[in-house]
Simulated scan of single mutants.
Amino acid sequence: MRRILVVGSSGAGKSTLAAALARRLDLPLIYLDRHYWRPGWTAPQPADFRAEVAALAARPAWVMDGNYASTLDLRLPRADLLVLCDPPRWRCLTRVLRRRWARRAAPRPDLPDGCPERVDLDFLRYIWRYPRDSRPRVLAAVAECAPALPFHRLRGRHDVARFLSDLSKQHRVT
């Protein structure tokens, strides 16, 4: 396993899991938010971002954290494994609010400079609607772009712990 794609709602634990995977497997970690956002939360031109993601996905090894449905067609065919972090929406909302409070003075490592943590009503709506709006788009992209891609859906802490334990066991054997 050399290329692992980690997706899910904001607050689902993607960045935490991606960092743990990168450490355990000694793989480069790519936070797509750091490549997408410009200072002041300015979005790039879509063609520029797609070109950057294509270059990132072409690398021989990575753990990539981020949704960005518009680039799943570039990343899924290159991935060896897809992990969907999919806890209940109330847990995602709680984590985002807790993270905002905890990070009020220090920047998050997965965000670029000039993009301080923020929470607004649109962001909270995105999280609440993720299971209805975004998760189906991710699953449809998998079915279309990489139907044979190994896939893990992690719904909570126990699933994450079991997944990491199984991964560690596999890596000791190989």
Rank of each mutant, 00 (worst) to 15 (best):
L25D: 01
R75E: 06
R118A: 11
L29W: 10
A54R: 13
P88I: 02
L74N: 07
T94C: 12
V160D: 05
A61C: 10
M64I: 02
Y31L: 00
D65N: 08
A51D: 06
S15Q: 05
A20D: 13
D86V: 00
P39R: 01
R91C: 02
A57H: 12
K169N: 01
R132D: 01
P109C: 01
P112G: 06
P131F: 07
A106C: 12
W37S: 08
P131E: 06
F151A: 08
H171R: 15
W41M: 11
P112V: 05
Y68P: 09
L76F: 04
R132L: 11
L167A: 08
L81W: 15
S134Y: 11
D73V: 04
P39N: 04
A54K: 13
T174G: 14
A47R: 11
T94K: 15
D120K: 13
F123L: 15
N67W: 03
R2E: 10
R132I: 00
I4G: 03
Y31K: 13
G66P: 11
Y130L: 10
G11V: 06
H158C: 01
L21N: 06
R99H: 08
D48I: 13
D120R: 13
D73Q: 04
R2V: 00
A22R: 06
C115T: 13
A58P: 12
D110L: 00
L111W: 10
D33K: 10
W37G: 08
S15H: 07
R95W: 10
D159E: 04
L25C: 14
E144A: 11
G13I: 04
W90P: 06
L139D: 09
V160N: 07
L72S: 10
D65W: 01
G156A: 04
R155W: 02
C145R: 15
T71Q: 08
G8M: 01
D113C: 01
P107E: 06
I127M: 12
A106T: 15
R38T: 01
I127N: 09
P136K: 10
R157P: 14
R162N: 04
W128L: 14
L5Q: 12
L21M: 11
S15A: 07
R157L: 10
P136Y: 11
V138I: 15
L154S: 06
L21H: 08
